[in-house]
Design a protein around this nucleic acid. Structure first.
Lengths: 221, 221
DNA sequence: CATAGAAAAATTGGATCCAATATTCAATCC
DNA sequence: GGATTGAATATTGGATCCAATTTTTCTATG
């Protein structure tokens, strides 16, 4: 037999597709906070009935990306500044630990991949891609911690504030500063200094949080 | 107008009820790991159609309490020993921090409530209630951290391993040891020593994890 | 008797239909 | 004119029906 086998166990259901599309739209900010999501409208866009849409919405709600009220429908969840601060606090805690656990497992290939993301981040001029590359950089290092549950929580908490983080990168001096901090984190990883990498990651997340909340305090209301 | 108004905004939907019932059954161990959940059967039990059941199952899956495969149905999720270890590691990290943040906010009333749970735990002889009281003790202290997102993550990770924790309390020397550790944590809280309370909480969670995984290694296959 | 394959039953995913609730808007009253 | 009421419309939650897939049962065959 000379052909590539494809794992057909788990093909995507309609609900999967709708869920992933909406999730992406929300974390990228394509759907604005407070925007309401009508089942029928979404169903038409995906050429399906409301049933898979309802399942997708239910999943999004469990992850805190939308809020729903009975018979009133779903809206893209917004976070207060206090809630955003809390999630950054949480991220700082988890991501520092994940980074610490990752360092001993980092191999040359992974470090090179992270280096490429780090450089690409510095060179990128399109604001729409900053958020994506930033996330790819961190994730590439985090994955070496080999802790699926931890990584799932990192992903979930990132999802909640990604929109705002993208705004921070776009509208503040976030990009050059993040670039410098990435450089320092990567250097610590290359040295194999887990504690330093963890501390720098913690500060990096808290810095971004501080910068973002300062920005929001100026521009909200 | 002279009557008490009742907030009717958010009455429970059928899906809510099914979800909460199944969640409880799973974390208490009433539904065993690997047990399969048929939509029609559950629907009949709740006198409803399969639609709300499907929504409940979808939510449970998002929280990792069940696993589903397309056209094959849902089964209660089981965790490997490695996965259990990881979740205990995660809990130790979060709960220590939550405890640290809670200590400065603990008032006399909260400490008294925790004291009552602590005593009740020591006195309780019914194994089925150990898990519940243990959780109530910790939660009563954690809540003072005033961090809804952190508390949500604590709850979610506890849900994932509660069944096993209950087994550990029941089948090992977990109860007297947990009792002593609760006493020490509570004493640190009463003293207002946040760092100590955090460290003891961390050790308490890791101890329970060690004890549980040792138990499982002996009894699984 | 074991087994491969087909038919039947069971189960899930999705579409359509109905009921409950919310929203809009015109008609009415002051 | 502005507030209030009630009908019309829109929207969500749930029930029922159909299609896709899996699992079980049955049967023929060696």
């Amino acid at each position: 037999m000379k052909f590539a086998a494809v794992d057909v166990r788990q093909t995507a259901s309609a609900a999967d597709i709708v869920y992933e599309s909406l999730r992406k739209a929300i974390i990228e900010g394509a759907l604005a906070e407070g925007e309401s999501l009508r089942q029928e409208e979404i169903a038409k866009m995906f050429n399906t009935s409301r049933i898979p849409v309802r399942e997708a919405l239910s999943r999004l709600e469990q992850h805190g990306l939308i809020t729903t009220r009975r018979y009133k429908g779903a809206v893209v969840a917004g976070l207060s500044i206090g809630e955003i601060e809390e999630i950054f606090e949480f991220r700082a805690l988890i991501e520092a630990e994940v980074m610490r656990l990752a360092v001993p497992n980092l191999d040359r290939e992974t470090l090179e991949r992270a280096r490429r993301y780090c450089d690409a981040f510095d060179r990128e001029t399109d604001p729409h891609r900053w958020g994506e590359i930033n996330r790819a950089f961190h994730t590439s290092l985090y994955e070496a911690c080999r802790r699926p549950y931890h990584l799932q929580q990192v992903r979930a908490s990132l999802d909640r504030i990604d929109r705002y983080l993208r705004a921070q990168l776009t509208f503040t001096d976030g990009v050059p500063r993040a670039g410098r901090e990435h450089e320092a984190i990567l250097a610590a990883c290359e040295k194999g200094d887990a504690d330093l990498a963890a501390r720098l990651t913690r500060d990096h997340v808290l810095d971004a949080g501080k910068s973002l909340t300062a920005f929001l305090r100026q521009h909200r209301r």
